[in-house]
């Protein structure tokens, strides 16, 4: 292979890695939107909190002398998911449920307020500086190409991100398509009023949606924290916007759409950063958002919204 094509391949690998994590976060936006038609702008902060919890658990366990890597990662993952889920649940309960039935704009403002609150709360509790995530997963799995031209690398960390994302998405897909709660979830997304009339407590389904979205955001929080090696209270904002873009790109309300949108966005960004000055990658990502909203507001896999009567 030529140098150029090896370089290109490396960008695709990097793009798919970041894209997987965007997809994990985007699920939270798309599921909530699919059911209650609201953008949960505090969702990015849930990801940030997940990252912090993972950081705290990992440094704590290492400090206690625990070194078995899989165990440390597993405990961090579970704790981050549980804590983030409780935040997701609490946010819905406190900031959104009381406003249900009022104008959509009001819930949106509440979400923005919640986002600012959470960010500042973490600044107060943890300080506003970067904290360094211990580099737990290092080294590379595959290297090919030659050192003189260009060497393509797939690191263990990238592999971990792919595998964990794949497992999470598979479990989610099975849950939505097969389980009783997943069925109720789909029913809510189609017609929440009718679901209520069939005797289903839709408030519980909505709460569950927030919990699932938050748990997946926490997975992304752990993975990206390890990948970048730093965590700070402001990472939620930009990651949230990127994931939101991914959700819109794929078609907001559609779960496969969020997965696809995340991957496309990740690859687009990686390619932009590779062939143009890397500052352009956010410009391109958000230009993409504007273009989709202008030309295909329903996204790639989204269905045209039919106004419910």
């Amino acid at each position: 292979m030529t140098e150029a094509s090896l370089y290109f391949l490396q960008q695709i690998i990097n793009g798919l890695t970041i894209g997987s994590t965007y997809a994990l976060i985007a699920i939270g936006y798309t599921m909530v939107y699919g059911i209650i038609g609201m953008i949960n702008f505090a969702h990015g902060e849930i990801y940030m909190i997940g990252s912090y919890v993972a950081f705290i658990v990992i440094t704590g366990l290492l400090g206690m002398g625990m070194v078995a890597l899989p165990v440390v990662l597993f405990i961090a993952l579970v704790v981050a998911m549980v804590v983030a889920s409780s935040y997701g649940w609490a946010i819905e309960r406190v900031a959104y449920r009381p406003l249900r039935g009022s104008n959509r704009l009001i819930a949106l403002i509440s979400a923005i307020g919640m986002s600012i609150f959470l960010q500042n709360y973490v600044v107060l509790a943890q300080g506003s500086r970067d904290v360094a995530m211990p580099p737990l997963v290092s080294g590379s799995l595959v290297e090919f190409g030659s050192l003189e031209t260009f060497q393509v690398t797939i690191s263990w960390m990238q592999l971990l991100i792919w595998v964990v994302t794949l497992i999470s998405m598979t479990v989610l897909t099975l849950f939505i398509s097969r389980s009783r709660m997943g069925r109720a979830c789909r029913a809510c997304a189609e017609d929440i009023g009718m679901t209520n009339l069939l005797g289903i407590d839709t408030n519980r389904i909505i709460a569950m949606t927030f919990v699932i979205g938050a748990a997946l955001a926490a997975v992304a929080g752990l993975l990206l924290g390890l990948y970048y090696g730093v965590v700070n209270p402001f990472i939620g904002f930009i990651a949230g916007l990127k994931a939101f873009t991914a959700a819109v790109l794929g078609g907001i309300g559609s779960i496969p759409g969020a997965m696809l949108g995340g991957l496309i966005l990740g690859v687009t960004e990686a390619l932009t950063a590779a062939y143009f000055p890397s500052e352009y990658k956010d410009v391109v990502a958000f230009s993409l958002l504007v273009l989709i909203l202008l030309f295909r507001p329903t996204g790639i896999l989204g269905k045209p919204e039919v106004e419910k009567v």
Binding site: A184, R186, A187, E190, M194, L198, I200, V309
Partner: peptide, 20 residues
């Protein structure tokens, strides 16, 4: 007007109604 869950199958419509 008909308010079925149109994107779900017939049997799923019947099962979701028995959720509780």
């Amino acid at each position: 007007h008909v308010r079925l869950f149109k994107r779900m199958t017939v049997i799923e419509n019947m099962l979701v109604a028995q959720h509780r």
